[in-house]
């Protein structure tokens, strides 16, 4: 088993004295699905955004796919990691002025120097896989939220990432659109993708997660297998959080 992400004692504060990350340590092995839960403001987004260098660290050691992403990291190095780590956001963040196809092929063409036809063929295949192959020539705003989020997943997958990060991918969706996105993620997990997923979807966590990590106030409260976490969480704070969720 190889280690995909190894973090020890990560510390990050946006405002002095207020630690968004307060000594977080964790390990994600290849092929694993780690679900991160916790109340609002507990540092979930901050944490997974350090994994592809969108946030810098104040201190701690972080190793992603064998590359160190510590306090002082180099732009080139970070960019290399971003090509190997895909990210999906709560607000989709598709490029509104580009067609669906262009959204997906931009990075493969510019970053991986693939030919246009090659990148397009691959994009169509990914869209088909997401069940939205016929949307390729539309623009983001013409799609439903669920469809847009599946495009965002396809866009991230187009670079053949080794790890996928999801930050509340279904929180901005209408309830009836949540399932189609979760299904796409389920498929991905089944095919062995290494995933770190911040979500409040208990069903997804129960079913897909290998481990659930619970955070509060910038710290890891507990990390358990889903069975344990949902039936007999070890920590009082986890149990209180879960009782509020259900």
């Amino acid at each position: 088993m190889t280690v995909a992400i190894l973090a020890s004692d990560l510390v990050k504060s946006y405002t002095p004295g207020l630690r968004a990350l307060d000594g977080v340590s964790l390990q994600v092995t290849s092929g694993e699905v780690l679900v991160v839960m916790g109340p609002s403001g507990s540092g979930k987004s901050t944490l997974i955004r350090t994994f592809n260098g969108l946030e810098t660290l104040d201190s701690g050691e972080l190793d992603v796919l064998g590359v160190r992403l510590d306090a002082a990291h180099e732009e080139r190095q970070v960019r290399a990691i971003r090509r190997r780590v895909g990210m999906v956001f709560q607000q989709f963040n598709l490029f509104p002025h580009l067609s669906i196809l262009e959204n997906i092929t931009l990075a493969p063409i510019k970053v991986q120097k693939r030919s246009k036809p090659d990148a397009a063929a691959r994009a169509i295949a990914l869209l088909d896989q997401m069940g939205i192959g016929e949307q390729a020539h539309k623009f983001p705003a013409q799609l439903s939220g669920g469809q847009q989020q599946r495009v965002a997943i396809a866009r991230a997958l187009a670079l053949d990432p080794e790890v996928m990060l999801f930050d509340e991918p279904t929180s901005a969706l209408d309830p009836e659109r949540v399932k189609e996105v979760l299904d796409a993620m389920r498929q991905l997990a089944k095919r062995g993708m290494t995933m770190v997923v911040v979500t409040h979807e208990l069903g997804f966590a129960r079913e897909v997660a290998d481990r659930v990590m619970f955070m509060d106030q910038g710290q890891v409260v507990e990390t358990s297998d889903p069975q344990t976490f949902f039936t007999s969480a070890r920590e009082e704070r986890s149990r209180r959080f879960l009782s509020q969720m259900m």
């Binding site: 969108l54 971003r82 931009l106």
Partner: peptide
């Protein structure tokens, strides 16, 4: 929106 920057950065674009 900031999300647009984050999106292109997360794709490894310069």
């Amino acid at each position: 929106p900031r999300g647009q920057w984050e999106a292109f950065r997360s794709l490894g674009l310069a």
